[in-house]
Design a protein around this nucleic acid. Sequence first.
DNA 1: ATATTACATTTGTACATACAAATATTGTAA
DNA 2: TTACAATATTTGTATGTACAAATGTAATAT
Lengths: 150, 150
Amino acid sequence: MKIEEAIKATGAMDLSAKTVINIAYTSRSLEEPFQAMLKEYDLSAQQFNVLRILRGQRGKPANLSTLQERMIDKNSNTTRLVDKLLKKGWVLRQVCEKNRRKIEIFITEDGLQLLSTLDPIVTESNKKSVSNLTNSELETLNNLLDKLRS
Amino acid sequence: MKIEEAIKATGAMDLSAKTVINIAYTSRSLEEPFQAMLKEYDLSAQQFNVLRILRGQRGKPANLSTLQERMIDKNSNTTRLVDKLLKKGWVLRQVCEKNRRKIEIFITEDGLQLLSTLDPIVTESNKKSVSNLTNSELETLNNLLDKLRS
DNA sequence: ATATTACATTTGTACATACAAATATTGTAA
DNA sequence: TTACAATATTTGTATGTACAAATGTAATAT
């Protein structure tokens, strides 16, 4: 469905506005079902994002600023986000010995286990999300988005 | 910048995952400065979205379910969102005479005035957001996003 | 050594969001 | 006409988010 119909726009939209809205709208339409799925595992999208970043560290700890830097949705309250993960036993938190201002955050075995359970579900969800486009179209789309941000 | 670099991914990402993340990431990168701009006018992105939908009604009232349906970010609490706009004098709310379950919401003159002030700023912001792409690329991008959602 | 500045995180506060339950109104069927 | 289901919105509660101020630590200059 064309974006104008999707949002039931009244008048003609200029190309820039249309594109900006299309990106936001498409993003939301993908996130909604994904977040609903995560919720069954007591995870928010942000928490999931943090767990994946921690797994990507392969044993190396991450501190809060690293997490913030890499998160898709930047948010000043990474502390409380990590609190939630800690309470559920999916991460560990300890003061860095070399620089006691820093906090080192690790993913736990339970956290890794949870991600393993989610991996196939997430892969399937992603595949389904983009199944209307061919690989070549997906490559084009990624290139355009990369260029748009550059 | 390629999305893998932007989020500092460790391993290779499959095309579906990459695309889904690219859309979310790009969307956020456009929203952040836009929301910061709106904030100077004491508006959230959602509130702005509602005001524009109401203007699009050209005098015809909208009820809550219409608003919800058309909003980019679906949200079950349109009531409270409208409360905020009401408190700032940008919308009016009255019970529908024909069906007293329904609430009719209108944009006020002040609300229209605010949007008029914002129009050129928003247009400029949108133009700047997508200035790295040619018109032809923008058309392609919109088509791909439309197709992805279809 | 002491003061100053920068850094990293936490906390307070206000606001936003999600979802379920409650309320009120309308339409329909027995 | 009463009861019941459907519709539209509001409210309660829990959780999430944004930003400024506070805290604690480290590095640098005086």
